[in-house]
Design a protein around this nucleic acid. Structure first.
Lengths: 231, 231
DNA sequence: CGCGGCTTTGATGTTCATCAAGTAAAGTGG
DNA sequence: CCACTTTACTTGATGAACATCAAAGCCGCG
């Protein structure tokens, strides 16, 4: 079923099913021909706030932060997202410019399709559009729920929550290297850098975690969960 | 083109274009036959968190709050929404139960369609699915941006922001009756009821607003905007 | 008429931001 | 490669912002 001239492996991509499970092999090849796979290094900007939206992006690998710079020039981090979370979905169907920036916090690989092409297919393939609808809805729900969760906690609970977020949701283990700076944690939970540091130090003093620079090791998970839940 | 037995006026509804601009007259009549128009009074619960999602709702008239009760039994208000904001879109395509409650804060009229029917149409009508995609994306974007805006402000800025939100966005005039209690404002901006009241009193003392119970009159809008922006 | 919820104000204490100062780490240019 | 600059991290001291507690008035409703 090789039809195009360019080598194309989208059919084998494990992410195919997420959006394109309901596309014909022909259409998939059509999309595949125009895709561009791009690699970003930690710190690279993938999407810049206020830029015109021309691409449909999805992450194959890595970790990114979604953030927004407000009028007073301060960054607020909206979410840390890994593959299958599809952060670029945030405003591509509702705006012509990005409301948020996306930055790699770990080396990341992204597939880029031409947005108008994807829109064209979506407008002609109800199942594809419906799949996108589901994904957009899921991605947004996750962000809103997570932000509510953080909002109802105090400083310590928020910091505990973030550590658990990385341990359980992002890495799936109790020892990991923090992919972000103390300041970025602060921008995420809406507290100051100093207080994030102070809280981490306090957790260390209380033997809840061990810290070696960016390395975090959770030694008393139960306590951490209690603090997150409220304490 | 009268085909059904039930009287049906969806074709005349001004909201038709929002979702169903790309449906055939026949399909529209099909949907219209099963629609139920329902009236709610101030205080009524329209959607209950954790309930099974069976309906596709949209507001024709009124004002509602979208809120979530957390584990510790406290309410957090996510947004105040008026017609065309389509709050029920929040999780109907990503979850089988509601993540949020919706409550009328003014008398409200809502149209209810059977969700599985709407899904069926969406899965067979790409333009309809695409329209829904746009709406879902818009509704979520608005919520996320608004919450970021509030998050970066302090108490006074938040209260000022809420007053301006009602004045400019909801009512379009500088004199209006607050549709919500002080406590609900507090639940929305993430502060205590006492401090919301204190701040309102302070604005009154400073001759920025006048207060007669629930009636608010903005007398110094420039100041209020400055405080909201940051002061 | 009395009860419960909403509103208001004051007093008090806690939480958190800010300021300051210093160390460590990492990038930059000669 | 080293001096230099910048950025990240850390801790302490102080004061501001905010929550909590308490008490009382108000209003609607059974």
């Amino acid at each position: 079923m090789e039809s195009g001239s360019k080598s194309c492996n989208c059919e084998l991509c494990q992410l195919k099913s997420l959006f394109f499970g309901h596309m014909s092999v022909n259409d998939l090849n059509g999309i595949c021909q125009i895709k561009e796979e791009k690699r970003y290094f930690k710190g690279d900007t993938i999407i810049m706030q206020d830029e015109k939206i021309t691409g449909f992006l999805y992450m194959k690998q890595g970790l990114v932060k979604v953030s927004r710079k407000s009028d007073d020039d301060k960054d607020q981090i909206i979410s840390f997202s890994k593959p299958f979370d599809f952060v670029s979905l945030l405003s591509i169907f509702s705006s012509d410019r990005y409301n948020y920036s996306v930055t790699a916090v770990e080396d990341s690989t992204v597939c880029i399709l031409d947005l108008s092409t994807v829109k064209f297919y979506a407008q002609n393939n109800a199942m594809l559009a419906f799949d996108l609808l589901t994904k957009v809805s899921e991605a947004n729900d996750k962000i809103i729920l997570e932000n509510l969760e953080i909002k109802r906690k105090h400083l310590k609970g928020r910091v505990a929550h973030v550590i658990l977020y990385f341990a359980d949701y992002i890495y799936g283990r109790n020892e990991f290297e923090l992919p972000v700076s103390r300041r970025e944690i602060a921008e995420y939970i809406g507290m100051t850098t100093e207080n994030v540091i102070r809280t981490l130090s306090e957790f260390r003093t209380d033997k809840i975690i061990k810290i070696y620079g960016k390395e975090i090791l959770i030694t008393d998970k139960k306590r951490l969960q209690d603090i997150s839940e409220f304490g």
